[in-house]
Amino acid sequence: MLKMENDSKLPMTKKELMEVLKINKPHTINKLIKQFKELDMMSEDKVELYGKQHKAFFVNEKYCFRKDVIKKASTKKTAKVFMNNIKELYAEDKIKPADLGFVYSIVPFVNYHHNLLTANPYEMDASKDKYLTVSDISEALGMHSKEVAKKLSSIKWDGMSVFTRIKRGRDTIIKANPLIVFRQEGYPPASMYAEFIINKK
């Protein structure tokens, strides 16, 4: 159930959802909710709290869940998003909804071993990893390569880049900041995000 804070008792209202998503027009939020429902990503229902009925929005746990709620989740097949850091990222002045959408669209490509973006993120043999270039990401997301390159270099959080580029031979491959998204158990070790801290501005 969507709530404004983890310890909130009441569900998030449509007005609060608009505020969080930085949406000003009711038409826009209604259209977005309709699309999410059609994609089976969100549902709307009534819940009874404190003797009253409240409308509530629910995210389909097939796509997004808290691990403490669903214990059976396999880390190798899912990616952990650090919610407080994502909230801070979205609160940055220059971050737009489309930027956050881009970050989430990258999540399926984050590799288990090293947080590099690969075509086979669940591959347990690191020697078989198929690294993605900007062109590969552009093709996978249906975006122009210049737009992808701009997103990769411009999305910042707390003075750090959310993505960094690494030269590998003739190609440039991409790494996602593990303090934002991480596929392994627990908190990422410092060695995984050292380059992001070093380049922090």
Rank of each mutant, 00 (worst) to 15 (best):
A56Q: 07
F109D: 00
A190F: 02
E16D: 04
L89M: 15
I29C: 04
P11H: 07
M124R: 09
M83I: 12
K156C: 10
I106D: 01
V69D: 08
S138V: 06
K25N: 09
K62D: 02
M18T: 09
M192N: 03
A140N: 07
T164C: 04
S138P: 03
P121K: 09
I137F: 02
L17C: 05
M12F: 09
L141C: 02
D129E: 11
A126R: 05
N30L: 02
F182T: 00
V47I: 04
K87S: 07
Y187Q: 07
T118P: 13
K72L: 06
K71R: 13
Q53A: 07
T13L: 08
A140F: 02
I198Y: 03
A73F: 08
L179Y: 04
I106S: 01
K167H: 07
N111A: 11
L141A: 03
K167L: 00
K94N: 14
I70M: 01
L49M: 05
Q53H: 05
K15M: 12
Y122I: 13
K15N: 06
K34D: 05
L179D: 00
I198A: 10
S145Y: 12
I86T: 15
F58H: 06
Y131S: 10
E147S: 12
Q53G: 12
N85L: 10
K167D: 01
S154R: 11
E185T: 11
A98F: 15
H144D: 15
S161E: 09
T78F: 04
L100P: 09
D99E: 12
M143C: 13
D99H: 15
E38C: 03
H54P: 01
E5N: 15
F57K: 03
E139H: 13
Y193V: 00
E5A: 15
M124C: 04
D129C: 09
P26R: 07
V47L: 15
L152Y: 14
D99C: 13
H27A: 11
N177E: 05
D93E: 15
E16I: 02
A194P: 12
Y122A: 09
K76Q: 07
